[in-house]
Write a protein that binds this DNA or RNA. Structure first.
Lengths: 109, 109
DNA sequence: ATATTACATCGCAATATTACGATAATAAAT
DNA sequence: ATTTATTATCGTAATATTGCGATGTAATAT
């Protein structure tokens, strides 16, 4: 089938998993790390930096943009992609809520 | 193609993204939450709890087991799946390392 | 011994994802 | 105006994922 049954899950479960899903590709992790390192970035940098075609990278950037974790500003003939600090922090909080469920009592067997 | 080019990324990028990937499905989030709530679990519980077939849930459990975040102990004719506290904490740390890159200077445009 | 219960695994169909070449779109440079 | 540079989008091929019925396996119950 390949079709996730989103309707049987809570909104929170769907939202959280879709965030994780976007981060579930090494190219997208690499893109985020590169943006952070450079404190700025344009797509063409990434084409040289990573070993992927321009079309592929543009696609990955689009997915990152979809969840809002990066934001693109047109700057002349290139685009400046940056971390959206607000969304980044929201993301951090979401993960903390999920992972900070008292880990000390999780193990039962 | 559908084939991720893992060879062009660092080990850390591949490892981190594969962790995220496993969490990138609402059923697997739901399973983890259920295990945490119950402090224990067997697969059959989940079949009733979530609306997925037994085979499907068994498959999702397998993926969670692959990254080690849960662990299964045979208990008579059923299996007790639990959070592996050590791996859970490791995961937490990995995420923190990734997300705690000084967010204050991330935004550039 | 047989039946039942609880999972795991196999095999399949449907859909999603990844990657890329080709092509468009837009802005700057000549 | 034309060329060049940068990014987006389209179409397509290959592979991956999701979900499930059917079947296998192992332990308990009858």
């Amino acid at each position: 089938m390949g079709l996730t049954k989103t309707e049987i899950f809570t909104e929170e479960q769907n939202r959280l998993s879709s965030l994780f899903k976007v981060l579930g590709h090494p190219a997208r992790i690499a893109i985020l790390q590169h943006i952070i390192d450079q404190k700025a970035c344009i797509c063409n940098d990434l084409v040289e930096e990573l070993g992927l075609a321009q079309a592929t990278i543009s696609q990955h950037l689009k997915e990152l943009k979809t969840i809002g974790i990066i934001q693109g500003t047109i700057e002349g003939k290139s685009v400046c992609y940056c971390i959206d600090e607000k969304v980044w922090k929201q993301f951090q909080e979401n993960l903390n809520v999920f992972f900070n469920q008292d880990a000390s009592t999780l193990q039962c067997c």
